[in-house]
Design a protein around this nucleic acid. Structure first.
Lengths: 222, 222
DNA sequence: GCCACCGTAGTACCCGGGTACGACACCCCT
DNA sequence: AGGGGTGTCGTACCCGGGTACTACGGTGGC
């Protein structure tokens, strides 16, 4: 019997997962968590075989929660679910130690077989992600010879967005103002401005409008 | 018995909805659609009491599908579900003739009572939206006495964008500033501001960021 | 132990965006 | 001859967004 913990901030989504999993006679849902903090806590306590983790959750997000769970060294493996097949998520998710990565628009059968694969120690990645994941990986290889210059050319444009920045860019793409972001993320507005400023610098955007456009073009939102 | 058609492009989401609804003894799911076209077709054929409609779907989106369903004059009422409580969706959804509007992070109980309300002819709007919706509405009223009045109240938000406005919204969606738009269109900046202001009013957008988002969602750009 | 990076927060400043007005010319329709 | 819709332009005002700094605690790598 495979024990599963569901971590998702949307009650309806949790309900759907629970019903699907409980309909299988080799799986059982041992708990539900609504945010990352709760997920780590319940994982430590319940030690499920698999944690079904949504990336986007209030407070501690799925990636950070995965990092902690893996760091705890328990037996639980993490299968991350995303709504959008975004490269950054896949990359940071796998770096965080997740055993799998699926998009939410998968068929129920794919999800079930994914859970079984992860439970037995295998890794699973959504087919739509595999290609780009590989591309992104080889892209970061030494390539045998950098232009020789400085060991690390610190062009801020080339460094990827951090998790926090990606998170904020996403809600910028939903039309949130700095004030709203500050409120709903429990941050000072000055902090939000700092993040937004760095996002603009890194993405080469002139203002938040162009950043939002970028978010749409790269399928971060939309 | 309330008959429901589920229109959502995500199989897992449909599964969750189906399980939730079927657990109620006064509801039954008569069909599932994965896009807007399928939703309109199945609605015409099955004539469900309520169509549970996701806004964002490939091809014909939920708003457009709602418009067609309402235009068809059948008995079905549409309850729209969104992931994010964006004003644009609410406005265009209600303009399209939807009977209700809920966000997906609602409690299951809220969704069920919402379906029952819509089925009996009532309207339902997510609490988080009601406030802003009312604010935006009363803001444009004559403030004296409106209701009972003219058969066609010329609410500016109900009229479509003019050609010029559409043209300008498109370049707004490419990240142009007001100054740039004025230069390249050979207009005064004040004129551009006038157009932008009217675009915001008509689309129910708070600022140009939300207008750009709308442009992307409606495939005006992107 | 040190250093780089990240996330947090603050202050001060400037400017573009948005609002609230009013105004005029053109076109099309009745 | 009027009237509604559209496109144009203007002024005045306020505020949120963006910039330019500085700063500090935590964490992870070397």
């Amino acid at each position: 019997m495979t024990t599963v913990l569901i971590a998702d901030d949307q009650p309806l989504q949790r309900f759907g997962f629970r019903m699907l999993l409980e309909s299988q006679d080799d799986m059982t849902v041992v708990g539900e968590a609504a945010d990352g903090a709760e997920a780590t806590r319940m994982t430590a306590q319940l030690r499920p075989d698999v944690v079904l983790m949504d990336v986007r959750m209030p407070g501690l997000d799925g990636i950070a929660a995965t990092r902690r769970i893996v760091a705890d060294g328990g037996p639980s493996r993490v299968l991350i679910l995303t709504t959008f097949d975004l490269d950054e998520y896949a990359y940071s998710g796998l770096r965080a130690g997740a055993s799998g990565f699926l998009v939410k628009d998968a068929q129920p059968e794919e999800l079930l077989s994914g859970i079984r694969a992860v439970a037995t120690g295998d890794a699973v990645v959504a087919p739509s992600l595999t290609r780009r994941l590989l591309d992104a990986y080889v892209h970061h290889l030494p390539a045998t010879a950098e232009p020789a210059g400085s060991a690390d050319s610190p062009d801020p444009r080339l460094s990827p967005l951090t998790e926090r920045e990606t998170e904020i860019l996403r809600v910028m793409g939903q039309g949130w103002t700095n004030t709203e972001i500050a409120e709903r993320f429990h941050l000072a507005e000055s902090t939000v401005k700092t993040h937004v400023g760095r996002i603009l610098a890194k993405t080469g955007s002139r203002d938040r409008v162009q950043a939002v456009i970028l978010a749409y073009e790269t399928k971060l939102v939309g």
